[in-house]
């Protein structure tokens, strides 16, 4: 057997062995748990700092602009910012730009309000505090007081109450979303007369206080497609709404021009960006522990190392085997 043949055999290995390799590498670190530190970058810090400055008088949008396909990356970003906002009592409007994305919004709420999630928030349905609302109790702190006076008790482990219509409004999907953004620069209520749960938005205290995008302080678009640009083109360029990007890693490098030109205040890129936000939340005592994105970073490290090794080994086999001589084109690069 000649030397060339060994290299050729190596390169023609059944790729299911490689599949197995990547599978093993992505499972094992979960059980060893190195917990390697993640250093934060200014791209993510600027979003965190901006949200941290806001309070119950302000309001933000979180737009769920991703499908299930990229939820592993986009969901932790949206969830992290949502928990940050709830901690600071910032009202959150939630939207989705496509029918499938509507489902992701609901899934995010399910996660944050679920008692099995560490550091969850106890959700109060819009209908359940109707009497208080009609009695004119709409300020966050007096609302909590009145609500607890009615005999409601915060469940163990919950970080706080969130009142639908006061702390969040699940607006959901509306078609031709770029036009919806344009329309919301005038009035949110005309674009969303009812929310995803069928509640009348006009009755919501947070909509009465923040009637249009002009009275909103930021929009985060957690996006798996080019739709994130709509927020820049239709809200930022039209009336100056600060925009924050949460992008999948595949998209992240393409949007640096927007960041540098000052069209967005910051950007989270991929799982790493989400992990950075989780680290910031935990370091500042906003969440009791880091979440899924941070826990995935060990695996990410291991898998990157494996792939780099594979590239190096493959190239060695390729050049040592002399395959490069075969296919070279004159006009080629």
């Amino acid at each position: 057997m000649s030397a060339v043949n060994i290299w050729e055999k190596m390169l023609n290995i059944d790729r299911r062995w490689i599949f197995l390799g990547i599978g093993v590498v992505s499972i094992v670190p979960f059980f060893i748990n190195f917990g390697m530190p993640v250093r934060t970058t200014r791209e993510v810090e600027s979003i965190y700092d901006y949200v941290d400055e806001l309070g119950s008088d302000n309001a933000i949008f979180i737009s769920f602009d991703f499908a299930p396909g990229t939820s592993a990356e986009n969901m932790p970003m949206a969830v992290a910012v949502m928990r940050h906002a709830f901690y600071n009592d910032i009202p959150v409007f939630m939207t989705a730009n496509y029918p499938l994305h509507h489902g992701m919004m609901l899934a995010a709420m399910e996660y944050v309000f679920n008692p099995t999630t560490e550091g969850f928030y106890e959700d109060v349905d819009f209908e359940d505090w109707k009497d208080l609302r009609e009695a004119g109790v709409t300020g966050k702190y007096e609302l909590i007081e009145a609500w607890e006076n009615q005999g409601n008790q915060l469940p163990e482990g919950a970080l706080g109450w969130v009142f639908e219509g006061r702390d969040y409004a699940a607006l959901g999907y509306a078609p031709v979303f770029n036009l919806v953004i344009l329309g919301m620069t005038v009035s949110i209520e005309t674009q969303y007369p009812v929310d995803a749960h069928g509640n009348s938005t006009g009755e919501m205290p947070m909509l009465q206080e923040h009637k249009s995008l002009r009275e909103v302080d930021m929009a985060l678009t957690s996006s798996g497609s080019g739709a994130c640009v709509w927020w820049v083109t239709y809200a930022r360029e039209k009336m100056g709404l600060p925009i924050a990007f949460g992008l999948t890693a595949v998209m992240a490098t393409d949007y640096f021009p927007y960041l540098q030109a000052g069209q967005v205040i910051g950007q989270m890129g991929g799982l790493r960006g989400a992990a950075e936000y989780e680290v910031l939340l935990t370091e500042n005592g906003i969440t009791p522990s880091t979440d899924k994105a941070f826990r995935g970073m060990d695996v990410q490290s291991a898998a990157h190392i494996l792939i780099i090794l594979l590239i190096i080994m493959g190239n060695i086999a390729f050049f040592a085997g002399g395959f490069h001589k075969k296919t070279l084109l004159k006009g080629g690069r």
Partner: peptide
Amino acid sequence: SLSGAIQIAGTDAVTQLPFFITTCDYT
């Protein structure tokens, strides 16, 4: 590339271009 063919690629999909550049002879 495994079958040993000469490969020429061309696309305007930015995210796919790096893969074509590293696997094809001309992009």
